[in-house]
Design a protein around this nucleic acid. Structure first.
Length: 605
RNA sequence: GGCCCCGUGGUGUAGCGGCCUAACAUGCCACCCUGUCACGGUGGAGAUCAGGGGUUCGAAUCCCCUCGGGGUCGCCA
């Protein structure tokens, strides 16, 4: 990358200069990163997007420039003209890419002074995030944030190039569209021209891309902004970017294969050091829940959950017995090398487990004294359950969890969903504590065979697991009327390092089946028409079989940048309270604006 | 909506009932300094301890409320 030739005030960028430019007169412009004033000589580290170069003001070369340089301060915008010169022997700086040379200045001007910045731009110190967000334009000058912006651009460019090479076209879809009843809360935009009516910002271009398939686009993608008025998290923002993608005349394999190829080549291009699992592992939803306790497992490490119910129910241990008697399960994980966990450490884990609904954790600690699992004796086992279990039963549990002497078994008894949930969280916690995940790895994997529906207690009706347009598996279609919970959807998720990176499905393309699903979701026929009539109508004009996927770009870039939140890879993110601290948005509007929109504000109690 | 954490000169931290008239580092300002690169030296300015209320002889410190930021549960098809 180079700014060369783009801007007239400069003909080289600071970061690109090296020994090859010796003797060249260069014109540079940028920001003062740091000034070192020796009274005689003044050194300035001049920074632009491409890097830093040392420029030297020598009063013997130009007393006027030296005088101007003495006025310069951090973050002043300056322009200089000078000669690229080899640094005197012994004064080279190997820490700087441009450290073999310097620019001896013959002409200089201050283009714009700067106030002292509210935080360090030239140091990688932690700064309060609200301050960074208030002055985001300064925060983005810092090298780490600049690198994140560039990385994001490269990811998006690689995606566009890849999909272009596969015959996809990018189509823009409306931002002002229609509110939909399913899913998240909509961001709404009042219509000036239609009293009492509102547009909604898209939660995703889902229906639009399906209509593009009906339109015969066949291979569509879009780097699409999506909006959901829900509470934020480290990996969730009110607005975010999806790679939205849809294809006609395909099945699951086409999508999964395409995305795998895309991500593999993308990672190789932007982060060659990152290791992937290839081919991407595929787990059924059931396997993921049973073995990892979550539908978005971190596949960088094992520590799989194992079912111990059969062994546990042979014991005389009340906690195990009563769990099994009430239809529950007993399952566990093995924390390697954690046999000597302290009381305090147990307490922390117990608190975590209780907070998630478990009664508590039963631990079995296997002493290091044994040379192997077979050599264990009762004396080497530490557990409140020990006197209710035979040595043989303990060995069977250890064997099923692939535990060895020195390891710690964490066992949960209770309702199957709670057991999986708690062990899933304990697995994450222990994985983090024991640093089991290779930080250089990005473990993508597919989760397939999700249930199509789940029963919503609060709504008292079936809800779509993914969204109401997901195609059921052919062989499960008869179950829609008899056992909706057993219907599996042709839906797939992609996970990466424990994050849901994306999800997609094959879609329903027959109006009648779609209508049937809407009815199952509790819509009356007279409600379906105004809400989804446009889609059903489209399906009656020759809709091709189609399907697609959407990937969360923010999360993907976050993982590639090794950041902890997606805010670090978004130029102007919002706070947890969904405000923009740079603009101070949202903000009140005037009475005139309200009146024009036919709106008045309600008094709240 | 619930729970948890944080808020002290510009920035990052220390102080956690009296030793605080608030410390340290850095930044900032002035002066000195021709080979530094986190330059160095000398001197200086800079804080109603987020805001409000309470407890106490006495509060940066303990309690309550509010505001702001973060994490998380709910929520996010």
């Amino acid at each position: 990358m180079s700014l060369k030739g783009v801007i007239l005030l400069k003909n080289y960028s600071c970061g690109e200069l090296n020994k090859r430019h010796l003797g060249t007169e260069v014109s540079l412009a940028g920001w003062v990163d740091r000034r070192r004033d020796h009274g005689g000589l003044i050194f300035i580290d001049l920074r632009d997007r491409e890097g830093i170069v040392q420029v030297v003001f020598n009063p013997e070369v130009s007393p006027q420039c030296h005088e101007i340089a003495s006025q310069m301060r951090s973050e002043y915008v300056i322009r200089v003209v000078g000669m690229v010169t080899a640094r005197p022997k012994g004064t080279e700086n190997s820490k700087l890419a441009t450290g073999e040379i310097e620019v001896v200045i013959q002409d200089a001007e201050i283009l714009n002074p700067s106030l002292t910045p509210p935080f360090y731009i030239n140091e990688e110190t932690e700064v309060d995030e609200s301050l960074r967000l208030r002055y985001r334009y300064l925060d983005l000058r810092r090298p780490r944030m600049k690198q994140n912006l560039i990385l994001r651009y490269r990811v998006e460019r690689a995606i566009r190039n890849f999909l272009d090479s596969k015959g996809f076209i990018e189509v823009e879809t409306p931002i002002l569209i229609k509110s939909t009843p399913e899913g998240a809360r909509d961001y709404l935009v009042p219509s000036r021209r239609h009293l009492g009516s509102f547009y909604a910002l898209p939660q995703s271009p889902q229906q639009l891309k399906q209509l593009l398939m009906v339109a015969g686009v066949e291979k569509y993608f879009q780097l699409a902004r999506c909006f959901r008025d829900e509470d934020t998290r480290a990996d969730r923002q009110p607005e975010f970017t999806q790679l939205d993608l849809e294809m006609s005349f395909i099945d699951e394999e086409d999508i999964l294969g395409l995305v795998e190829e895309m991500l593999t080549s993308l990672v190789a291009a932007v982060k060659p050091g990152v290791k992937l699992l290839t081919p991407f592992p595929r787990l059924s939803y059931t396997e993921a829940m049973e073995n990892y306790g979550t539908d978005k497992p971190d596949l960088r490490f094992g520590m799989k959950i194992a079912d111990l119910t059969d062994i546990a129910q042979e014991s005389g241990f009340t906690i195990f017995e009563s769990a099994v008697a009430s239809g529950g399960k007993v399952k566990g994980i093995c924390a390697p090398g954690s046999a000597d966990y302290t009381h305090k450490q147990f307490d922390e884990l117990n608190q975590l487990a209780r907070g998630l609904g478990a009664g508590g954790i039963i631990t079995i600690s296997l002493s290091r004294a044994a040379g192997s699992r077979d050599e264990l004796t009762m004396e080497m086992v530490r557990s409140v359950a020990a006197k209710f279990l035979t040595l043989e039963q303990i060995k069977r549990m250890a064997s099923r969890l692939e535990a060895n002497p020195g390891d710690l078994l964490l066992i949960i008894a209770g309702k199957p969903e709670v057991v999986n949930l708690v062990l899933g969280e304990l697995r994450q916690e222990m994985g983090a504590r024991l640093k089991l995940a290779d930080p250089a790895q990005l473990a993508f994997g597919y989760i397939v065979n999700f249930p199509l529906l789940h029963w919503s207690k609060e709504m008292g009706r079936w809800e779509a697991e993914h969204h109401p347009f997901t195609m059921p598996r052919d062989e499960d279609i008869p179950l829609i009327d008899t056992a909706p919970e057993k219907v599996r959807g042709r839906h797939y998720d992609i996970v990466g390092n424990g994050y849901e990176i994306g999800g997609g499905s094959l879609r329903i393309y027959q109006a009648e089946l779609q209508r049937k699903i809407f009815r199952l979701l509790g819509y009356k026929d007279n409600e379906i028409e105004p809400l989804f009539g446009h889609l059903l109508e489209a399906f009656s004009y020759g809709a091709p079989p189609h399907g697609g996927i959407a990937l969360g770009i923010d999360r993907l870039v976050m993982l590639l940048a090794k950041e902890k939140t997606i805010r670090e890879v978004i130029a102007f993110p919002k706070t947890q309270e969904a405000t923009d601290l740079t603009f101070k948005a949202p903000s009140p509007i005037t009475e005139e604006q309200l009146a024009e929109l036919h709106l008045c504000l309600r008094e709240e109690d």
